[in-house]
């Protein structure tokens, strides 16, 4: 069974936000009203954490892209009363939107605040509903959604590989954020595949995971020269 994982090289990442935009476009993520956004209800599956460290003039701004961490021991799935979120056989934490009752227990349980809630009926650019990605279903008001590692792409490449009767190759399954990163700072692949780039990087001396002591085993790794 594959173990899909993502690695961010923070030494390369400039914090440009291309991953955020790519994700929004690929996954038909809705745009909320300005007031709602300012109140913290903007829907970003891929978010950007900004942290100022130090004081003027030796200050550093650190930016950290943050998708869903797809934990191997996910706390969010354990609290869902209706099994709308679960760890699937691809090792991804999946959401089943029409099962979701909107209780938001999973949001509270997630230590990384990776999940977002549709407070209102979704809205996009007016009149631009033709440019939806047909591979990703739309979500209605009252459900929780989050980064899926672009699982719909996995279905597609899996099928193609099966038709060609071969195994998936490293780099064949690529989420939208990794595909468009101008700094090549996002790596994606299978940790079970010892030849994959993410496997090698996940063993790097620069690697760390967020809140590792919680024991939730996140599958998103960050590379950085130094940690604060």
């Amino acid at each position: 069974m594959p173990k899909w994982a993502m690695v961010f090289d923070l030494d390369k990442c400039t914090g440009c936000g291309a991953c955020m935009a790519a994700c929004k476009m690929e996954n038909n993520v809705a745009i909320v009203d300005p007031e709602e956004a300012q109140a913290g209800r903007a829907l970003f599956w891929m978010d950007m954490i900004n942290a100022h460290e130090g004081e003027y003039p030796t200050v550093a701004i650190k930016r950290m892209p943050k998708p869903c961490f797809h934990c191997d021991n996910p706390p969010c799935t354990k609290v869902c009363p209706v099994r709308a979120t679960y760890l699937n056989e691809d090792g991804l934490v999946a959401q089943i939107y029409h099962r979701c009752i909107g209780c938001r227990y999973c949001m509270a349980a997630c230590p990384f605040t990776a999940k977002v809630f549709n407070w209102w009926d979704p809205r996009w650019l007016e009149g631009a509903t033709t440019c939806f990605n047909p591979d990703v279903s739309l979500r209605m008001a009252g459900v929780v959604e989050k980064c899926s590692f672009c699982a719909h792409r996995l279905h597609h490449v899996n099928e193609v590989a099966r038709v060609d009767d071969r195994a998936l190759q490293d780099g064949e399954f690529m989420p939208a954020c990794a595909e468009n990163c101008p700094a090549d700072a996002i790596y994606f692949g299978d940790l079970e595949n010892k030849d994959s780039q993410v496997y090698k990087l996940s063993r790097s001396y620069r690697v760390s995971r967020v809140m590792e002591d919680l024991g939730v085993e996140p599958k998103v790794y960050y590379l950085a020269r130094r940690t604060a």
Binding site: G17, A18, A21, M25, P182, A183, D184
Partner: peptide, 8 residues
């Protein structure tokens, strides 16, 4: 292969 938010 790189993009910026605006182009996307």
């Amino acid at each position: 292969g790189g993009m910026c938010p605006l182009g996307l």
